[in-house]
Design a protein around this nucleic acid. Sequence first.
DNA 1: AAAAAAACTTGATCTGCATCAAAGATTTAT
DNA 2: ATAAATCTTTGATGCAGATCAAGTTTTTTT
Lengths: 234, 234
Amino acid sequence: MTENQTSKQHSCAIGSSSASCMELLNSQELELLDSKMVEVSYRKGEIICKQGAPATQLMIVREGLVKIYMESNTGENLVLHIMPEMNIIGLSSLFEGNNTYQFSAQAYLDTRVQVIDTATFKHLIRSNSSFSLKVIGLLAEYNTVISGRFYCLTQKQTYGRFADVLLCLANRIYKQQKFPLHLSRKELAEIAGMSVESVARILTRFKEEQLIELECKHLNILDYNRMFEISQKG
Amino acid sequence: MTENQTSKQHSCAIGSSSASCMELLNSQELELLDSKMVEVSYRKGEIICKQGAPATQLMIVREGLVKIYMESNTGENLVLHIMPEMNIIGLSSLFEGNNTYQFSAQAYLDTRVQVIDTATFKHLIRSNSSFSLKVIGLLAEYNTVISGRFYCLTQKQTYGRFADVLLCLANRIYKQQKFPLHLSRKELAEIAGMSVESVARILTRFKEEQLIELECKHLNILDYNRMFEISQKG
DNA sequence: AAAAAAACTTGATCTGCATCAAAGATTTAT
DNA sequence: ATAAATCTTTGATGCAGATCAAGTTTTTTT
């Protein structure tokens, strides 16, 4: 399970860098931030922000796991990004002339965010060049994450995509090959861009082939190399 | 053909804002830029940068049209973005720890670019906060463009996707409903994420239904509203 | 603890679109 | 101008994966 392997597969919904850009602020800036910032907690499943709503603020994820997605008229959501702590929701609404959220955000788990208005955030970018460079890095990374998912969902087929999702969970969230599967089949299906039935079929197939083990809601990737192979071939 | 309609359809490969961030530099910074910058011309079809190659420089498109795409092992390319002049190639390779291009770039038309090393570019970001804010805006826009295409190619089906491409060409590139169709069926297919045969079939169908007119390599969108409707329904 | 609801699995069918194939049109080379 | 190569169109076939349907398990409610 080398990081090198992970980086090649361009597919994961989660970025690799920890987005701790707040560390770069000086005490005065931190003070400003503190005075302007509000902390909000969301329960699992609650909507954090809604596509189309006025984007007057950014949200920094401090704890939990957030799904960033686009809503379609058909009711099917397109998951763009999954954000663990230290990521920033709404950065791409920062660009001029764009005053609404392009995406919705929902809590996968109980989540705590810090809300900051865009004006203050822009002020910090202006006043602190290291901070600004870090924000650019963050946006660049979000770009890479979305492009990777784009590639994965359009070029690979179901087994490859699903292998990708499992590897992503193992590598980026739980950081071990055996992990608790909090997500429902429906949520997995949404992330992998396929039907619930396909998820069920692929899981049973993976079990049959001894690729994974699934007991008491814990998933164990038994053969990491073959799983990686499947994710690569598509 | 209102801009409002255009903005709703989240599908176009081309951004709307002109990325003239260079205007924000002062004379000293421009001098630095000039001394460091090299201009390179590419012929139609030539590769400007290659996925996986070391990303030591950025390229500012000054003239022409550039395709940004990911290469897959199957030979099929995924078009992420189409950049007219005043866009910057390689911004998303700016993030720390990422030293290779994630995408390839190829000239659709004869193209002139200005090449600048990332170190100098980062220096400019640090020294000029307006410039840095503009770069953030640009990256945010690229994010939106890619997400829109992601949505379009995964949620809509062939007719909707193809209508989108035609509208994108009309609105963003040629800025009129009748325009020269320089792109081959193969290139159109690549942009719309479908086979060449599907493009041919859809075009004849659109002609039959009097939605478009195609003579002497000029395409005319006869019924903009219905085309828009098709692009929306998917 | 029983009943109701939701989540999951498995098989059967349907369909959008790619692929294959072959003919016609256009461009490029000779 | 003719031949060769490439591009485009149109029809026939095949397939991955969605949808439909029905049964099973798990979770929630009462």
